[in-house]
Design a protein around this nucleic acid. Sequence first.
DNA 1: TCCGATAGTACGGAACTCATATGTTATCTT
DNA 2: AAGATAACATATGAGTTCCGTACTATCGGA
Lengths: 169, 169
Amino acid sequence: MSSVLSDDGPGPEDSGAARRRRRSTTAIRESLRELSIQLSLLNHQVGARLGIKDADLDCLDLISRHGPLSPSSLARLAGVHPATLTGVLDRLERGGWVTRERDPADRRAVQVRTLRERAAEVIQLYAGMNSAMEQICAGYDEAELDVLADFLRRTAQAGHGATEELAAR
Amino acid sequence: MSSVLSDDGPGPEDSGAARRRRRSTTAIRESLRELSIQLSLLNHQVGARLGIKDADLDCLDLISRHGPLSPSSLARLAGVHPATLTGVLDRLERGGWVTRERDPADRRAVQVRTLRERAAEVIQLYAGMNSAMEQICAGYDEAELDVLADFLRRTAQAGHGATEELAAR
DNA sequence: TCCGATAGTACGGAACTCATATGTTATCTT
DNA sequence: AAGATAACATATGAGTTCCGTACTATCGGA
């Protein structure tokens, strides 16, 4: 099934194993695309319940994972305009999700960090997805789980690389 | 590493194989979260190059995958307000990405479909990611590829289910 | 034919994004 | 050491977007 957002690779000038292999690779690309959208929509729903916009939730996630960091580096990381990020942080701070504190070492800089108080609400909302994943993972042996985790990690890394390449030029 | 957006599962009252297994499962959850963000950021960059907002690009993707469909069903699918979707379609139509045509059978209804003209631009922007995926997939044998594709498909399905569960209540 | 339901969109107020300007604070230059 | 320059975060304002509501057109049933 050819579609607007992806091509189907080269033509069928070869056959047999290579052909089946390409089918599998294409299937992965397709599934990955579907997965991407579904996770976006899940985040959208979660954000809606919490009164947090999609982009804001992305930022909150980045803050929670990449530790305390400055607004400017967060802006770079999230690919948004610094002035936009001020508004994002205003909303997150007002909602009690993060704090801003001046860096004592460099008083121009600000350190943004997450608060733990409201973490439970978020976990609660992702509970459905988490238990579904638990169930899916239960069907694999440990070697398979490691292969899967490694694949996901490398794919995320590939996404990061592709994003930076686009941002650079 | 405990963080705001996910817990780390039950305590360590068991050990050995079960423990390692839980570590693997957690690694998958973490990688999946990272992947979700990275793909969002990639889409954000791609959208920025095309002058398409994130949500609009999501809608375009949904239209391209789920064939011609009506604005209302698309609104349900994307989880946005119907009036908002009017604006989304206005922008996508103005940009030459989709067309709106009245359904002859039910003249209230509208069918939205993608145009193929500008597809190449999108493919071009995802070329970096696609070739990276190609490279990653090259490292797996066909059985592994099938396992991966199946896992991704089921995970996407889980995301869909979790989203619907949240939207329902 | 009349009436309620449905599909899509127009409208208007509130909120958001981003380019630019501003006020601090750090760093460089000489 | 002092002034110039750069970096950081945020204020400001114009343009855009979101969404609750209202409106028009059309369909299906009594």
